[in-house]
């Protein structure tokens, strides 16, 4: 049976997407606080933050910032809609990375020291995670013989059974995207304040926050695609949600037990672990297929 999400489901999912990202962030702050023996803010804290920011007046340096912020949200929104409607995974990936380009340009557009360093670090991060992300998407395409998301639902076994290692590599991407230790390099709060976001305020800062919600939804969404159980919609939803939660819990633990690393280390880690794991996994798949084909 080929599970096709209905159009209504897709629409609902794309509307719910930012709120899912928001809840993930809210739980994140709560769980982190509990791990540190604190009470922590309410679950809806990210929501309050954004509503408050929309209620504030803006102080911007120039209009270009607004354009880049809007383009950032716009591309991620487009990408989310494509993901929810089972579009082309490569296009989804490229739209995310385009969004990040706009985000970086928004940082660069103001001649400000912290913003500039934030932009630079954003680029280092892109250098670190884009190859991993791209190779993961590519290995999914290699296994499904197609880059369409809906084709993943037509596989015989879940992707994670064939290519589990890219998922491990994707943790690096996820940590970077969540702005979490050890890779919270660009927004390094205590070091360069908020990096790329520093020159934004009020509603436009809220836009960046919302874009961040989308981002989290997208990365978790793509990672949980590995857990699609073909032919069983109920189990698929359960396993995808469980996988998303598990990934996310692991990321919180990593966040709490590590300190921020230098971008040098990040690049080396991503090349040494991220890319290698994917390559090893794809090689294994090929060798197994070769042996099976030869036998």
């Amino acid at each position: 049976m080929n599970f096709q999400p209905s159009i209504l489901f897709s629409i609902l999912l794309s509307i719910a997407a930012p709120f899912i990202g928001m809840l993930i962030l809210g739980f994140d702050r709560k769980i982190t606080a509990r791990m540190q023996n604190r009470v922590g803010p309410p679950i809806l804290q990210p929501f309050y933050d954004v509503v408050k920011l929309f209620g504030k007046s803006e102080l911007m340096v120039k209009k270009a910032q607004i354009l880049f912020a809007l383009m950032f949200v716009g591309t991620l929104l487009l990408s989310t809609v494509l993901l929810c409607f089972g579009g082309d995974l490569l296009v989804i990936f490229f739209l995310i990375s385009t969004g990040m380009i706009f985000y970086t340009l928004g940082a660069y557009s103001v001649k400000s020291g912290f913003s500039f360093i934030g932009g630079n670090r954003e680029l280092y991060q892109m250098l670190a995670y884009e190859p991993i992300f791209m190779l993961t998407v590519f290995s999914v395409g290699l296994i499904t013989k197609s880059f369409r998301v809906d084709q993943i639902f037509g596989l015989e076994v879940p992707l994670v059974a064939i290519i589990p290692l890219p998922l491990v590599s994707m943790m690096i991407v996820f940590l970077i995207k969540m702005q979490k230790s050890p890779f919270d390099i660009s927004t390094a709060h205590t070091e360069i304040i908020s990096g790329p976001m520093i020159e934004y305020s009020g509603g436009y800062l809220a836009l960046l926050k919302i874009a961040h919600w989308y981002e989290i939804f997208l990365v978790i969404g793509i990672m949980s695609l590995f857990f699609v159980v073909p032919g069983n919609p109920v189990l698929t939803v359960v396993s995808m949600a469980a996988a998303g939660l598990a990934i996310y819990f692991v990321s919180i633990i990593i966040d709490n037990v590590t300190a921020r690393v230098h971008w040098n280390t990040m690049l080396r880690l991503s090349a040494a672990i991220g890319i290698t794991l994917i390559v090893v996994n794809v090689a294994i798949v090929y060798i197994v297929a070769y042996i099976a084909g030869g036998a």
Partner: peptide
């Protein structure tokens, strides 16, 4: 932080 207070530095 339980009141939602964050030190922003900006």
């Amino acid at each position: 932080e339980r009141f939602g207070i964050l030190s922003k530095g900006n």
